[in-house]
Design a protein around this nucleic acid. Structure first.
Lengths: 150, 150
DNA sequence: GTCCATGCAAACAATTTGCAATGCA
DNA sequence: TGCATTGCAAATTGTTTGCATGGAC
């Protein structure tokens, strides 16, 4: 999906909820889609501060990220501490690997895990709505530097 | 493992780190093992307040829970909001199902998921240290009452 | 013109910390 | 006795909210 199509999707989402397209919302939205990294509200706020464009307050960053999440434009990931976001469009579902040393986040996809989750939920009489799977470990680079420190 | 053996394990853990066995620590420790439910720091603090025994401050509850977690006596689970704890001893590893309506927590065990996680980590060059898998859904009771509300 | 949105600062919730007093070992 | 521990209140962190002003439609 190109930038234009995404923009239209956002506009139509706002209209559907009778919300307004403000310069702040547009700026936050576009910035969130301009990166392929994970970012926190604070990080995004810092980007807003150092880059050019309409001034955006911290409160608006939080409010707009919440809005984007409700609209299914971004997803949040709880890193134990702050929430980080990533945009979703053109990005299939995946889970995360988090390096405990450097904080690097890698993504992986494993449909067989999803299937087993469904099964486990059914077994316990639950209707599965969503899940959060985070693998904590040490990435290759950190493992190597830990080894060379010895 | 009986209460006595668990107590000794705790005492020896404290000794190994040259920490002291205070009435507060003993009380918190025993209370944590006396329940088979999940509990938050605040809940535990409330138990301390309403039941008899040496007075325990909120700060000490937090500090001791952290200590118990480091020692591998309890494990924490992030429910999005507050952390809840459960004791580990005599309790194999499992993951959680959380009801989004009533907050009820169910446990399940699925070794095949663990195996696939290991594999995914290896594929990405990570050394897996731990993981957190939470399934969010609606428990049977809540699904039924939601249906009857209609 | 009518709501909705923004910025600001104050409020929040959960947890952590500094410090002086206290208490195990 | 010496260092760990406690309680208290103040501090922190990440996030949310109330309210007066400003702006999109």
């Amino acid at each position: 999906m190109n930038q234009n199509a995404i923009d239209r999707k956002f506009e139509s989402y706002l209209r559907s909820r009778s919300l307004k397209l403000t310069p702040q919302r547009r700026r936050i939205f576009e910035r969130a889609f301009a990166t392929h990294q994970h970012f926190s509200a604070e990080t995004l706020y810092a980007w807003m501060a150092e880059e050019d464009g309409p001034r955006v307050s911290r409160a608006t960053v939080y409010r707009t990220l919440a809005l984007l999440e409700e609209g299914g434009f971004v997803e949040s990931l709880d890193t134990g501490g702050e929430l980080v976001y990533e945009h979703i469009l053109g990005h299939g579902h995946h889970d995360h690997l988090i390096c405990v040393d450097c904080g690097r986040i890698a993504e992986f996809r494993e449909p067989r895990i999803e299937e087993l989750q469904e099964q486990a939920a059914r077994d316990k009489g639950f209707t599965l709505l969503s899940h959060s799977l985070r693998l904590m470990g040490r990435c290759g680079a950190c493992a190597r530097s830990a080894a060379s420190d010895r």
